[in-house]
Design a protein around this nucleic acid. Sequence first.
DNA 1: ATGGTGGGTACCCCA
Length: 269
Amino acid sequence: MKIATWNINSVRLRIDLVKRFLTTIGDIDVLCLQEIKCRDDQFPAKALKAAGYIHQAVSGQKGYHGVAIVSRLPLRDVERRAFAGKDEARHIAATLPGGLRVHNFYVPAGGDEPDPKVNEKFAHKLAFMRDMSAWAKSACDAGARTVLVGDLNIAPREHDVWSHRQLLDVVSHTTAEVALMDKAIAAGKWTDVARQVIPEPEKVYTWWSYRAHDWRASNRGRRLDHVWVSPSLKNAALSGGRAHFVVHTECRGWDRPSDHVPVTLKLAS
DNA sequence: ATGGTGGGTACCCCA
């Protein structure tokens, strides 16, 4: 079972990149998308069906946000949840055959000013993370086989950013956000698969700003996209010591790319 | 210290 997650930054504009990714990487059963930036009826359902992803769960909205799960395997019990009291399309969940539940999140970016008193967007991001903790505590029972993926817009560890020192006051790497992400991980007893497979101090990035002359040369990246698994899947990404978690950095170098790259998780099944 | 680019949308929001 191979699952991918990708903040596509407009699925209509980049549907050809999605198809290229699915064919190039191959073997992907489930693709979770964030920032589809379209309404449900504008989602490129036909193109993805033609590519074999005939099972689709979409939570779109006009212009902003929006998440979707497309799959070669049937999806059931589709759920769209509102967090932090805002009815925005930032979460969708579905269950795969065999009972594997997939939660796809797009956490608010949080604006520029890292002060919840003056920046409502940052306050919203912190509230969203608190709500995510409360949800994880109640929704994630110990025996469930659950995967949580998405653009969580937080790079928690020192080596998840190009410069820990220079980003300490930059939204995405502040101590307030990281503390809340750690709480959410603890609340759901999640395993952060990227860091299980690629321990620090190795750098891991999934996002590079558009505002760089040469993203590869400057390499000022951040790990904003995450894959968490529930306790019963703790070792599912490791089989015989071999890692099955991959960051597809090459996609950032494609023509008209998203600023995020896809990551894949292969679960032993 | 600053500003850089790229989406959707409708003359400006957001990342």
